[in-house]
Amino acid sequence: MRRPLTGVRVIDFSWVGAGSYATKILADLGAEVIKIESTKKVDGIRLSPPFAGGQSGVNRSGYFADRNTSKRSMLLNLKEPAAVDIALRLVAQAELVCNNFSAGVMDRLGLGYEAVAQVNPRIIYLSMSMNGDSGPERHARGYGAMMSAITGLHHLSGIPGLAPAGTGTNYPDHIPNPGHAAFAMLAALRHSRRTGRGQRIDMAQTEAMLATLGPELLDWTVNGNDRDPLGNSGEGLYWQDVLPTAGDDDWIAISTPTSREWDALLATLGLAAGSSREHALGDVATAVAARGNRELAEALQAAGIPAAPVLSPPEVIADPQLTHREHWRILDHPEMGRTLYNGQPFRFARHEVQPTRPAPLLGQHTDEICEQLLGLSPQEIADLRTTDILS
């Protein structure tokens, strides 16, 4: 099926987490995303575990693979002026340019917005440094964990009265920042198709993260209330927790939004109805500990109680709901072989929007891009390799 972004070309200078995931979304939607890489400074997540078969290598990282499906990879040593000229020739044939370098890096390379707009006035140019391209903190550098601390997400996470626990992962890199960036590029692309004009988008990743904390920010600025971490509880909920069940380190998450679900929980567990939370919590924990987490979750769901087993990674892969949604995709990678990939967490009724190709090998498509888009001969390509430009 034709994909929503078929025919859109993206020159992707992003690397590591948030930027790569933003352009992966576009690539899975059908855009031709050309990832600019170099052997002189390899994308950090190419060197990050887990590695296929436990064997490390620039083409064997599962982390990199999942962030870069459906893309093509081209080698360009951007420290060479001739390589920058080649990059500008590619930009002249593209609709979008994306990078998540620190502020000022693209300008120093000769690939800042002004330089790019000279060769392509209609370009949509997204930069997504940590604090944006302007302001007193523009040169600060960081990744998801730092953004979680700066924006206060860590302050809100953990058990009340204890040190912040964090989210267990670099949450800003995986959800808010790539999501905001992809949405911004799609909105700008729609605007360009309606008006013929490009846009410069300066997205500070800390600001995208702050956008997810609106209620907490308002509570502080309007009410002067600095909310403490909630632990496993939830604001406005009658009761909620994550409890151990029968089995080896098996757990279940249960939520009772109102007293009605609480009474249904007691009935499902065979406990006396009408018991208050304070008096019944010990009995609830004991009853839950005697049940299997999957069996109990099904029984609670049947009673109208939000509940789910806490799954290990192998159990997530085998989860019936994800299987039904066809979330997992197996793609044949040139070096890693048949490899499991995440699909996009959404589906379209009339368009396919899931990964089409595995992540590329480092520089895998350099020659074909040079031939197809730049009109270079095999000899010219060989000469560029010899002079360290395509490296």
Rank of each mutant, 00 (worst) to 15 (best):
P160Y: 03
T167K: 02
G144T: 07
G168A: 07
M146S: 06
M147T: 14
I150D: 09
A140K: 15
P160L: 00
G158R: 04
L156C: 13
A140Y: 14
T169R: 05
T169Y: 14
M146L: 15
P164L: 00
G142D: 05
G158T: 10
L156Y: 12
H155E: 13
Y143C: 03
I159K: 08
G144F: 07
P164N: 12
A140I: 05
T151C: 13
I159A: 05
L156E: 12
G161S: 01
R141P: 00
T167F: 15
T169W: 05
S157I: 06
G166C: 10
A149N: 07
G168W: 06
R138A: 15
P164I: 01
A149G: 11
P160I: 02
G168T: 12
A149D: 10
P160N: 07
L156P: 07
Y143M: 10
L162A: 09
R141A: 14
A145I: 10
I159Y: 05
L156V: 07
R138V: 05
M147A: 15
T151L: 00
L153W: 13
A140M: 11
H139R: 13
G168I: 04
G142P: 09
A165C: 03
R141W: 00
R141D: 01
Y143N: 03
R141N: 11
H139P: 00
G161V: 01
M147W: 04
G144H: 07
A140D: 06
T169E: 02
P164Y: 03
L156S: 12
G168K: 00
T169D: 00
G152S: 11
G142K: 12
A149H: 04
A163V: 08
L153Y: 12
G168S: 12
H154R: 08
L153Q: 06
Y143L: 15
G152Y: 05
I150F: 13
G161H: 07
M146Y: 15
L162V: 02
M146F: 13
T167W: 15
A165P: 02
A145W: 10
G142F: 06
M147R: 03
I159H: 07
M147Q: 14
G161Q: 08
G168F: 09
L153D: 02
R138N: 06
H154Q: 10
L153C: 07
A149V: 10
G142S: 07
T151S: 14
M146Q: 11
A149K: 03
P164F: 00
A149P: 03
S157G: 12
L156K: 14
S148P: 08
R141F: 00
G166R: 00
L156W: 15
L162Y: 08
P160T: 07
H154G: 09
H154Y: 14
P160V: 04
A163I: 02
M147E: 15
G161T: 06
L156T: 13
A163E: 15
H139A: 11
G152P: 02
P164W: 03
P164K: 01
H139V: 09
T169V: 13
G161R: 00
A145S: 11
G158I: 05
G158P: 05
T169N: 08
I150Q: 08
A149T: 10
G152A: 09
S157M: 11
G158H: 12
H139W: 07
A163Y: 04
I159P: 02
S148C: 06
